[in-house]
């Protein structure tokens, strides 16, 4: 079960790399990636539904919850755009540069270093998505790819992937995602979206724990 490589077109992973069957953090990361990379409400609703399922199934130790109201997804879409996409001022832009760089702009150093990381893996953002490489969806994707490389047979590759994972989490995502979350949570939003943000926080914690265990 290779994780689908959207939003990136990629050089296929080397044959020697076997991808571990997805465990909760991988599944969560994929779904969160799908949410933040959604180009239309179909993709967005599907991601929100899957996130809800994780909660319903009690995964990641989040409390199970009743199903959403029918109109909740549409309201979640409006709120998602208001907070993350636009067209107005976005209180919580989902780009690492905004938080990690001195200037709250896109295409800062964080984007360049993420681009370097992707290039080193032979990956690039798909032309049609044209997301800056430090967009949250891209960073989740990078984490997924590195996780798959971290169980490679090739020892040198494994070690490099481990180091890159450490950098990506400790030196990057752990720093900006909490600030991103707190800015986003300062906004009012319907349940499916606040639940999705809870999932992102839970994922960050579990990814960190996984790293600490290894």
């Amino acid at each position: 079960m290779t994780p689908p490589l959207s939003p990136f077109s990629s050089v296929p992973l080397p044959e020697s790399v076997s991808v571990a069957s997805p465990v909760a953090p991988e599944k969560m990361a994929q779904t969160l990636r799908d949410l933040f990379a959604a180009r239309n409400n179909g993709a967005m609703f599907s991601a929100l539904e899957r996130l809800a399922d994780f909660r319903a199934a009690g995964e990641r130790a989040l409390p199970a919850m009743p199903p959403y109201e029918a109109s909740a997804f549409r309201e979640a879409e409006y709120a998602f755009n208001r907070i993350f996409v636009g067209p107005g001022h976005v209180p919580a832009p989902p780009y690492a540069s905004v938080y990690l760089d001195a200037e709250p702009l896109l295409m800062g150093r964080a984007a360049v270093s993420m681009r370097d990381l992707f290039r080193s893996m032979g990956l690039a953002v798909r032309e049609e998505d044209n997301l800056p490489e430090d967009h949250l969806a891209c960073e989740l994707e990078a984490w997924l790819v590195l996780r798959s490389l971290a169980s490679a047979d090739d020892g040198a590759l494994r070690r490099s992937a481990d180091e890159a994972l450490l950098w990506l989490l400790d030196g990057h995502m752990q720093i900006w995602i909490p600030e991103f979350l707190s800015r986003a949570r300062a906004e009012s939003m319907p349940e499916p979206l606040s639940d999705a943000l809870d999932c992102l926080e839970a994922w960050l914690l579990s990814a960190q724990n996984a790293l600490n265990r290894e």
Partner: peptide, 22 residues
Amino acid sequence: RRPDAMDRRGFLKGLLAAGAAA
């Protein structure tokens, strides 16, 4: 505020040398 600027040379080269990169 920019831990991002830490030296990533090691793992970038490692990923590259292992043939995962273009």
